[in-house]
Design a protein around this nucleic acid. Structure first.
Lengths: 127, 127
DNA sequence: CCAAGTGTAGTATGCAACATAGTACACCTG
DNA sequence: CAGGTGTACTATGTTGCATACTACACTTGG
């Protein structure tokens, strides 16, 4: 049984879209630590994607420590981990800089951006 | 003469890196409206990239209305334009949601994120 | 006028990523 | 021990990226 939803859109790799959907589900507590996660074959069948693509998704999520492999069983949602210094720098420096540059070039106010952050922080329950 | 700097890093398309560097230069006022921008051939020579790639960069920037073509002359930095509703939605909804999801999964505080936004907003003069 | 520079368009090649299909193996569970 | 699990291959087709090269219509500046 699948416990998150996806609407595929072209232009973005399928496996990235799935990974993001899973992260969103975890962050919004639709998926909680300890919950079982679909196996490679189950995921590929339910989402009608290739087993290789499903395997790619799970491998990524394991490498990012969002899933833990239970040999012979499947995988399980893990507890959230603190960011490494490198991950922290990537977000707070690189990613946010990109966001600010794009906002500034489109003449979007600082307040609008910060309000949007606050807004998304409090409700991650979209559709 | 090139009036912005780039350090290429692998994994990201060259043309995207250049586009971003130009945006950053404009936003930080190292490039101002009316300034002349390198021609396709000049850009390809100075950055040692293929003319096609340079053309791709300029075409993108023109389509985003950051440059204006002066036929026979070259191109010129344009005034910043207000975002369309679609661009505004893309940033304030999609992009910021992605940022928040990634921050939350890495247990980064809301305050840290907002402070980083404020910080990047005031000084775009790195290195 | 005209040489030189401009943007633009086209063909072609090599490379890598993405998604697909199919097969196979070692492992653990029930 | 049958069946499910993750994992690892090979292979194909498509797409995007970067390169090389040629060509054309345009405008500038001498």
């Amino acid at each position: 049984m699948i416990n998150f939803s996806i609407k595929f859109q072209s232009g973005v790799p399928i496996y990235e879209q799935i990974i993001y959907a899973v992260k969103k589900a975890i962050v919004s507590e639709q998926l909680r630590p300890g919950d079982t996660f679909p196996s490679v074959r189950e995921l590929s069948k339910d989402l009608r994607i290739n087993p290789n693509t499903a395997q790619k998704v799970i491998a990524h999520l394991v490498r990012e420590k969002l899933l833990i492999i239970k040999p012979g069983i499947g995988s399980v949602v893990s507890e959230l981990k603190e960011a490494t210094d490198l991950q922290r720098k990537e977000i707070l420096d690189t990613e946010i800089e990109k966001l600010v540059v794009e906002a500034k070039r489109l003449l979007i106010n600082k307040k609008e951006v910060i309000d949007a952050v606050k807004s998304h922080w409090n409700l991650d329950n979209e559709e």
